[in-house]
Design a protein around this nucleic acid. Structure first.
Lengths: 337, 337
DNA sequence: CTGAAAGCGCTTACAG
DNA sequence: CTGAAAGCGCTTACAG
């Protein structure tokens, strides 16, 4: 790779002037600008990123700390982030914490230890900003109080108000799909959610409740069953609700909804005909089961994109007024409602 | 962030000596080593990556150029790469070409243009090596002849022998699953593959052919139908083979296999009972359809892991003898054979 | 075993 | 408008 010095010898212009041309300063005559630009083109000169970042202490790089790239949500989130960052002229430096294969699922000491290490690494690389990308939503407190660069939390809620979060609008999504089930004739409702202490579960419960109350349909805590976010949970809890005479089941995610469908089929019932079922997430497999799941798709790309825009505006010194930005889910029509 | 100079003042030791301690040189007395290490711990000193890389022209960073992070194969491949790289003490710098959203599917001029740009960027960052991560397999010629650092192609075949590739063993996988179908009673075979000019299609055809010939079962080109890698293709081509009296259909991927199942169900036949069907890929949704697909899972993690090991050994100057390394697929038992 | 000095390739006041 | 010089924070021969 050719350096500034070599380019300078080739052009017969000082390295300072060439640097000014390359960085778009307008204190250079058109004539020399032209000479330099041509030489750059001819030689394919690329400024040494290490040297320019070291000197200017601006790297035009954003560090993305990813909890786990294999989470179903991660690729679309990354794609969204990179879309806005590329548009704004930023590179990305990814660090994959690999929480799943390391079996660090929760926010204990071990978790904060590896996060802290990742943050220090990013600081050593002198990134201009950081995005923490959660593998699943919850409340986290990942960035230290005294961070000297802007940071954003995507797909989870940041407990520290200095670092805004971009998350989905759980409550609205749950409200909308419940309302849709009501419009399709649902009269008696139950919910099989994921873990009861999850932010999702709480917010979705509140949207569900709101929809029922607006329609004058009875809401009862007894009809809300929680458990794991998996297919087995759906299959196991379904009979409890069906015994209670429920005609519509709102599920915490697509896996749970599939489990409910499994139970129905096994017992001679047809999802979407005998019992209305809604999923949540909008994962690929929801489109492959039959009937297809009616579900709410999480706006992963949009959340990522927004997080990218946010970090750029923070770097540019813009005031951030909202500390919690939400993106709306998309309704996906299947055949289970 | 604290610098070497500040640390040097704190310890009363020159920066050169501190640098030697940090870099594990054994030309420092135990006593000063101890003093320095304690100060490092106390202050949380992190060497400036930019400065040390610039000076030493070693970054301990591998650049990964990803065609598209949203390809179903990418996350597991990335995970595998990072597993081996982390073990060897390398960071990663990811560049996502976003070929899908930019609608650059093929290896035309536009493709090579963005790849070249990504490579130049990686060089500007002074990565120690590069991995090109394909979104789908084919033959590519992504790295220039005169690259000054090692490079590896993962999930696609490199045409340039200087840069080894790590790919799956298509032929063996196809051979194995065809053999399994034969062992389950298959007598008359057909294949619905993806695009006929794909490396996968050609290699899998050859494995399929070998299995049939070994078992004394007729192989005929007429029973090999190719088309798009999607569900629709499977559904449309299925009747042609069934009309010919085929009892076993080898499919090019899980999507196609699902399409064949769709057709069977629509016509009152049961996959795995009336007709044997095999998928390929081992995607998540293959586990959600009923019956579950019997398929060959691509060793994505293993390919990535291997590519990571490979680049590390190349950086360490080890001789690479194989230019095409293959990883074997995993048999996944479902209910369609 | 230790440290002064050069230098990696840039950017940035500053003098002319 | 142009260029000489300092310096970003390290590493690396080299002298002692």
């Amino acid at each position: 790779m050719i350096t500034l010095k070599e380019l300078s010898e080739k052009c017969g212009v000082s390295i300072a002037t060439i640097s000014n041309v390359i960085n778009g300063k307008n204190n250079v005559s058109e004539a020399t600008k032209k000479v330099v630009l041509e030489a750059v083109k001819e030689t394919g000169y690329q400024p040494n990123y290490l040297a320019s970042s070291l000197r200017s202490s601006k790297s035009r790089t954003i560090g993305i700390i990813i909890e786990d790239v294999t989470a179903f949500s991660s690729p679309a989130l990354i794609e969204g982030i990179m879309h806005s960052l590329e548009k704004a002229g930023y590179r990305t430096f990814l660090e994959n914490l690999r929480c799943y294969s390391k079996e660090i699922f929760d926010t204990g000491d071990k978790f904060y230890e590896i996060v802290e290490q990742a943050i220090r690494q990013m600081q050593a690389i002198k990134v201009d900003g950081m995005i923490f990308l959660a593998a699943h939503s919850r409340e986290v407190n990942v960035f230290p109080e005294n961070l000297d660069i802007p940071a954003v939390v995507a797909y989870a809620k940041s407990l520290n108000q200095n670092y805004p979060s971009v998350i989905m609008n759980d409550e609205l999504a749950s409200y909308e799909i419940t309302k849709y089930m009501i419009s399709k004739g649902g009269k008696k409702f139950g919910m099989i959610s994921g873990m009861s202490d999850s932010v999702h579960t709480l917010r979705r419960k509140s949207g569900y409740k709101k929809a029922l109350e607006e329609a004058g349909i009875e809401f009862t805590e007894e009809n809300i069953l929680s458990g794991k976010w998996d297919r087995k949970n759906g299959c196991e809890k379904a009979p409890d609700l069906i015994k209670k005479g429920v005609d519509s089941i709102v599920c915490g995610n697509d896996h749970i909804a599939c489990g409910v469908c499994d139970y129905l089929r096994k017992n001679g019932m047809v999802p979407g005909k005998d019992i209305r079922i809604s999923g949540f997430d909008g994962q690929e497999f929801a489109d492959y089961v039959s009937p297809k799941l009616t579900t709410m798709k999480i706006p992963l790309w949009e959340i990522g994109n927004r997080a990218g825009e946010l970090i750029v505006s923070m770097i540019n010194g813009e005031e951030i007024t909202e500390t919690e930005i939400t993106e709306n889910c998309f309704f996906i029509e299947g055949g289970t409602i």
